[in-house]
Design a protein around this nucleic acid. Structure first.
Lengths: 236, 236
DNA sequence: ACCTGAACACCGTTCAAGT
DNA sequence: ACCTGAACACCGTTCAAGT
């Protein structure tokens, strides 16, 4: 009887409960330290119990991605540019909450159903805005991962493995002296960002600004192509 | 004496020889099946021998990235737009030869020296073209990983883990029927690409076209900002 | 029939014992 | 002093033995 009671104490395992626990664990400790074994331990369960609900670790990660993508706001009504811009910025907020997700999405070789649904509704917004399927197609490629709210920042000091990066503000972004000597041009743009006179955000790059800068650069270019009736047939 | 001879038969280990073997192994079998142990076996050496030349696996991968980045053509002379465009397309060719490299670069939390040098020379080209450090800075962020020749193709069917993707041409890209029903807009753009009347490339997406489409969209937008004397101070 | 512990085939890396 | 085999602390997953 006490044995029975102990067993019943925990909510029964379910795919959903496993995925939620996995997302929480990856958020806290980073995805590289998420293992079937310590996920099971977190759930108070023997490792093999997970395999009743997920086929293997790859399928677990797929499920985790779907949980994250489901957090993105549904599309708004209104003109295509505004709707897509808002949705992408929402996606960005979601991915900031789950720093492991961008890399996880990229490392899958096939998109998950939730990602496909997200992409589909984005194409839908373009077509509703009068885009030809031709232009919509190229636009989707051009947006790349940015459509899902992330871009790989090649010199992003904040993307520390594991840590839930968004929380800790950047320290002053000046390059250490020996780096500045080797890479004078990087030093110049880093310094420009740090000591930008009327910048309210303080030292370091304002990631939100950079993201919106790139996003609007793309959206403005796309709008121009759309307005001009761009076609891929023998044009470029 | 024969023992001695056997030992001498293989070229002596060196960091360079290790890195080259690791790149070759990753190119052939994918980076997920690259281990210290089977790299050592490839080199006819005991695993621990590698640790004389690389501190650990992370440093090995950093070294591999530097080998790849070194294959990118040096910058050409000429106007900034042409020079940067050519260099990025060269980077793309290099990354196509090493399909594992893009993800490896992204998953590092700090850029390697060779990557920094590459970025630095790109900034140099912008500044030589008359860009303010301010604009050059935002431009680098906007280019994101595209500056290194890759973009994450979220619905790229060719990015199979392991296989050296560039070799095998795409099969017809129509979505399977049950996918087409669930994601009608994706089906529409996929079909548009497949059955594009005067397309020479045949079925499927022409990845090179898509990459250049996005690259030129960005470069044209950047040129426009540059020409108009764009500044971040209270503009956006 | 269901569940699960032990086992298998791997990892990266430490360390002490061998030369 | 150098090199390296065995060992350690992990993996994901299989499988047969237990209930």
């Amino acid at each position: 009887m006490p044995k029975q009671a102990e067993k019943v104490r925990r909510a029964p395992l379910s795919r959903d409960r496993i995925l939620r626990a996995a997302v929480a664990l990856a958020d806290e400790t980073g995805i590289e330290s998420l293992s079937m074994r310590n996920l099971a331990q977190d759930l108070g369960v023997v490792p093999m119990a997970l395999y009743k609900h997920v086929a293997n670790k790859d399928e677990l990660v797929d499920g985790m991605i779907d949980v994250v993508v489901a957090e993105i706001d549904p599309p708004e009504a209104g003109d295509w540019k505004h709707a897509i811009r808002r949705r992408i910025l929402s996606a960005r907020q979601v991915l900031l909450r789950h720093p492991w997700a961008a890399l996880a999405i990229e490392s899958r070789n096939t998109a998950t159903p939730a990602v496909l649904a997200y992409l589909d509704s984005t194409v839908e917004a373009l077509r509703a805005g009068g885009f030809s399927t031709d232009l919509a197609h190229h636009v989707m490629h051009a947006m790349g991962s940015r459509v899902l709210g992330f871009s790989q920042e090649l010199f992003d000091t904040s993307r520390q493995a594991g840590r839930s990066g968004a929380t800790v503000p950047e320290p002053p972004a000046d390059l250490p002296p020996e780096m500045a000597a080797r890479f004078p041009n990087l030093a110049a743009i880093a310094t420009a960002a740090s000591h930008d006179g009327d910048s309210v955000v303080g030292p370091g790059c304002d990631d939100q600004f950079e993201f919106e800068f790139a996003l609007d650069l793309l959206l403005d270019g796309i709008e121009r192509l759309h307005r001009d009736g761009w076609t891929s047939h023998r044009t470029l």
